[in-house]
Design a protein around this nucleic acid. Structure first.
Lengths: 211, 211
DNA sequence: ATATATTTTAATCAACTGATTAAATCTCTT
DNA sequence: AAGAGATTTAATCAGTTGATTAAAATATAT
């Protein structure tokens, strides 16, 4: 009888396999990734990936969960902060995400694919209790603003869409920008740094002027 | 010796297989799609897909090319029209794309994935001569505007990013909006119809106010 | 109607893939 | 240094997958 890996163990091999798997999964996707690719990328033997993670799918689930947590992590603190204005919150949120995405540009497409292929599984992982929509301070501030400005008649979902779109989509489309528009990695990152200030300004303009 | 399918032949079977393949490929992706899935979805025998299309990859390439043409088709006419203003062009373009995406909401993620996994192959398919950036009338109009307004100092790429983001991204993220934000298919489409008018207005505001 | 070509089917193949196994090597405690 | 447990390896397995084949069924032309 083979002993399963215990809680305390040499973390380096397991961690290296996980890192290799992260690289391969995010570039090739789940189905196109062979356990042999992960073994090769990690430099370890094929059997180790099943030894440490039981199955390809379990390994994938672990990586997906960690990526999702990167998305959700610390949002609640920003969104529920009572000492920042609505405008400040938007600015901090967007800056926070652009920083994270410059470090991990492959995450959005990776997550969006899983969301498309397996919505139920992923929504369950996200947990519906992560963000209680109604009790968040940002939502209160938004409602106050909406109540004050009589002109604000568009569906608030448009604003959410715009923030997410303008922040995340460039990363999803970056291969197009690079290969087709001839923008280098450095130029792209510089553009995204600029957008940290620009997007909040644009969003505020949209909120204030849309009748 | 087996005869290859000739130019004139019963198009229905081949077309039905292609349609089935389109459905399966766009929902599951290339690697996760088995030729048996396509056969089952089409209702025809497994061997037919290789009989008509030589290989799974060739079938995929055909479908990908057709989707790309949907993206590029008729853009040149809009963009190079000398009798419409810059603002009108933006409005027509966005309306055109939203119409197309409401009919084919699965295309963007499908194409973006291929772009990510195989940029060179896809760029070659797109053809660099499809849009000659400099000789297009829209570019002339933009340069005139940029010359007139001294305040227009941001990189024009930001505007391109914003148009593409606000138009395309909602479709890529629609499973999130549906399952997480509880928006139905009808509500989503209604929001996108609204955005046909809203996005051009927002873009114009961004162009005019960004210092 | 008969022959010819096209279309469709069932059966099969070789390569690939995720997973398992048993043995070998390493690490650490005693 | 001996033993026990943890880690790593090579070999192998059963199931899957894209593709091929030969034959049957159908359509088309003469």
């Amino acid at each position: 009888m083979k002993a399963q890996p215990e809680i305390v163990k040499n973390a380096t091999t397991e961690e290296k396999i996980k890192e290799a798997a992260r690289r391969v999964f995010t570039t090739k996707g789940y189905a196109a990734t062979r356990t042999r690719d992960i073994a090769e990328e990690s430099g370890y033997n094929l059997a180790l990936i099943n030894y440490y993670f039981r199955s390809k799918e379990k390994l994938f689930d672990i990586i997906m969960l960690e990526h999702l947590q990167l998305f959700i992590h610390s949002i609640k603190d920003i969104v529920d902060n009572q000492s920042t204005s609505l405008q400040e919150k938007i600015e901090i949120l967007i800056g926070h995400y652009i920083d994270m995405l410059i470090k991990n540009p492959e995450i959005p497409l990776f997550v969006l694919n899983e969301l498309n292929a397996n919505p139920a599984k992923l929504i369950e992982k996200l947990g519906f209790n992560q963000i209680e929509n109604d009790n968040v301070y940002l939502v209160k501030q938004w409602k106050e603003l909406a109540g004050a400005k009589k002109t604000l008649t568009i569906n608030p979902m448009h604003i959410v869409m715009n923030v997410l779109s303008m922040t995340i989509f460039p990363f999803v489309a970056s291969p197009l920008l690079r290969d087709r528009a001839g923008i280098s990695q450095e130029e792209f990152n510089k553009l995204m740094e600029e957008r940290k200030k620009l997007i909040p300004k644009w969003i505020l303009g949209i909120i204030m002027t849309t009748t």
